[in-house]
């Protein structure tokens, strides 16, 4: 079998030092293959964001190794695109400026840049909004722009930290379908953090359940069935069974986390 795209070995993370230190992650081992859509689900505070920030290179692990295509991660880089729940966009740039940002930093020539921006505006259905500023857009539209901004950089792997967590249920459902569509189109590797079990099952081809803090990988479950739209999962008994199974697993951890 081919080498994994992303490989975490014995990764631990503590915030701070001494008696006040917070153990956020306890020995994470995780290998993620190319083209997988991996969702990470677990109780609030179990270290999901921390795990993503480590892969992003924003934080350094206390111990352990993180390798992307065999090369150790030493800092942030455009090979890993990230979408946060909020604040991924630069408020002082228009939609166009935000999508073009990474391309400008890379030194992509103007004409090429414009072409890529147009393509990504279409991809996230934001044609006609290119001259708006983020504050003039709804939360859902802002996240579409963030997605386009990230995808325009052509990252190897897409990291998302509860990107739809602040959106209303309808917008969230529509964006879930869009992310699935985008992932199918160019089958990027995706690492998607959520605390919503349904979202984890509907999006993930591979669902990682984390334990209560300090976070460990509790189980990794493959979803071996699929549908065209997230809606169709509703009537699918296999989906309901998997959702229930994962919910029970997460619930156990939520209860364990309670004092």
């Amino acid at each position: 079998m081919a080498d994994p795209c992303l490989d975490l070995r014995a990764v631990t993370m503590r915030y701070g030092e001494g008696p006040d230190a917070v153990a956020a992650l306890a020995s994470i081992d995780l290998a993620i293959d190319d083209h997988e859509f991996v969702t990470i689900v677990g109780p609030s505070g179990c270290g999901k964001s921390t795990l993503l920030y480590l892969v992003g290179g924003f934080l350094r692990p206390t111990s352990g190794r993180i390798e992307l295509r065999g090369r150790p991660v030493t800092g942030p880089g455009p090979d890993r695109g990230i979408v946060f729940q909020r604040y991924s966009l630069f408020p002082w740039l228009t939609v166009r400026g935000n999508i073009a940002y990474g391309l400008e930093e890379k030194g992509v020539p103007r004409a090429e840049r414009d072409r890529i921006v147009e393509e990504h505006l279409r991809l996230v259905h934001l044609e006609g909004f290119e001259n708006r500023y983020p504050r003039e857009l709804s939360g859902g539209m802002q996240q579409r722009v963030a997605l386009a901004q990230t995808l325009a950089c052509q990252p190897d792997i897409l990291l998302m930290d509860e990107p739809f967590g602040a959106l209303d249920a309808q917008t969230r459902r529509i964006l879930q379908d869009e992310v699935r569509r985008i992932w199918r189109r160019d089958t990027k590797t995706v690492l998607f953090v959520t605390h919503d079990v349904e979202e984890a099952v509907a999006l993930g081809t591979c669902i990682v359940v984390m334990s209560a803090r300090p976070g460990r990988i509790k189980e990794v479950i493959a979803r071996d069935f699929d549908v065209a739209d997230v809606d169709e999962f509703e009537a699918n008994p296999a989906f309901a069974a998997l959702r229930l199974r994962i919910w029970r697993s997460v619930k156990q951890e939520v209860e364990a986390a309670r004092p």
Binding site: P76, P78, Y87, Y101, E105
Partner: peptide, 14 residues
């Protein structure tokens, strides 16, 4: 400055 903005920029090659 929001740390997320700095992270966002670094992850986009700045």
């Amino acid at each position: 400055v929001d740390e997320m903005l700095l992270w966002s920029a670094r992850a986009r090659g700045t």
